[in-house]
Simulated scan of single mutants.
Amino acid sequence: MRDLGVGFGYLVKGQRWAAGHGRAYGFGLLPGLITLVLYAAALVALAVFGDDFVTWATPFADDWSSPWGGLFRGFLVAVLFALALLLAVVTFTAVTLLVGQPFYESLSERVDRSVSPDGSAPQSPHSLGRELWISARDSLRVVVRAALWGVLLFALGFLPFVGQTVIPVLGFFVTGFFLTEELTAVALQRRGVELRERLALLRARKTLAWGFGTPLGVAFLVPFVAVFLMPGAVAGATLMARDLLDEDMGEDVAEDATEDTARDIAGGERGLADRLGACGHEPSP
């Protein structure tokens, strides 16, 4: 169970790293914003037309006496929307990483250099086009796996009591695992680790993946939070990838990085004022 805390620790460290690198963090928000707009439109459409879809899909309930037909269809609409949210959380990361592939690759390399004893970072042997193709292909495979789990959990949701208590909790853990896979893929793919190997690494340390991905998945359910957490999530996942591969992060380098981050955070307001001044704006009092 210790790995649960370790995984959550990587999530926190990643957010702290992003907070200490404001320029990289700012650029990292753009892919998430684009993806958020697309997903919000899809969820709004589901909320508007979901009832009509369920009514069309359940003609056998037309003759049910009141209020059982309405309650049954209302329950199906709620479950359908919950399933859509589950899939949105899982696929949001995949789509955002694909949209922001060049940036997140650069961000992951910077994290590697900041904790590597010799200041180096593994380089991908593939061209950008090949990297995008591999990312899209692997993301589709992960989404299919997540969708199969989603269908299974959807079916189990009809079980009395268990479907309303245990199954939603299992859904968050499943979401957390696949979120962790998508995020660690940025660093692991750059090291030439294929999808099957990545899944094997995470299955061997499920509690580590859950500790990192499950709280992140819960946070992603809050509107806009996913956008602001993505850069730090990629940074934390890079640190986790080094752990999964037993790569040395160097204690002295890690301590220096922590101190640098603290100094960057403490001087964040002054840095922002300097940047505003350089752009010809007067900082607010």
Rank of each mutant, 00 (worst) to 15 (best):
P31M: 15
A88H: 07
D51E: 12
L71M: 14
L30A: 13
S108K: 07
L46N: 06
A47E: 08
L38I: 03
L43Y: 00
F60Y: 14
D118A: 15
F92P: 01
A40T: 14
P117T: 05
P117V: 03
G119E: 10
A61L: 15
L107N: 04
T91N: 08
R137F: 00
S116W: 03
A42S: 12
Q123Y: 05
F72I: 02
F53C: 00
F154H: 01
V151R: 03
V37G: 12
F103H: 15
P31F: 11
V143P: 00
P122K: 08
T35F: 00
L128W: 11
T35D: 03
V37K: 01
A47H: 11
A61R: 01
A84T: 13
D63L: 12
V143Q: 00
S114D: 15
A84Y: 04
L87P: 01
Q101T: 02
V77Q: 08
E131K: 10
R145P: 01
S65Q: 12
G74P: 06
L80T: 12
L132D: 00
Y104P: 02
D62I: 03
L38H: 02
A121W: 04
F161N: 13
A146R: 11
A136V: 08
L152F: 08
P59T: 09
S106P: 02
A146K: 07
G70P: 00
V54M: 13
V37N: 06
E131V: 07
S106E: 08
V111H: 00
L38R: 11
L87Q: 13
T55A: 09
S124A: 01
W68S: 10
A147G: 10
A94T: 10
T93P: 00
F60H: 13
L98Q: 14
L107A: 10
L128Q: 11
F103A: 08
S106T: 11
G74D: 07
P67A: 15
D51V: 14
V144T: 04
S106I: 09
G50Y: 04
T91G: 03
W68L: 15
L97Y: 01
G150T: 07
S135C: 05
V151I: 13
D51N: 11
F92D: 08
V143Y: 03
L76E: 14
V77R: 09
L87D: 08
G70L: 02
V48C: 02
G32P: 08
Q123D: 06
L128N: 02
T91L: 00
P31I: 06
L87Y: 10
F75E: 13
F60K: 14
L87N: 05
F81D: 05
G32N: 05
A82E: 05
G50V: 14
F158S: 08
L128E: 05
F81L: 15
F103G: 09
E109V: 09
R137A: 02
T58S: 08
G74N: 03
A42M: 10
T93H: 12
V79Q: 15
A61C: 06
F154R: 01
Y39S: 09
V144H: 04
P59N: 12
S120I: 00
V111G: 00
R73T: 06
G74V: 06
E105F: 06
S114Y: 04
A42C: 06
P125A: 11
F60D: 15
F161P: 05
R145T: 04
L85M: 14
A94I: 05
P117N: 04
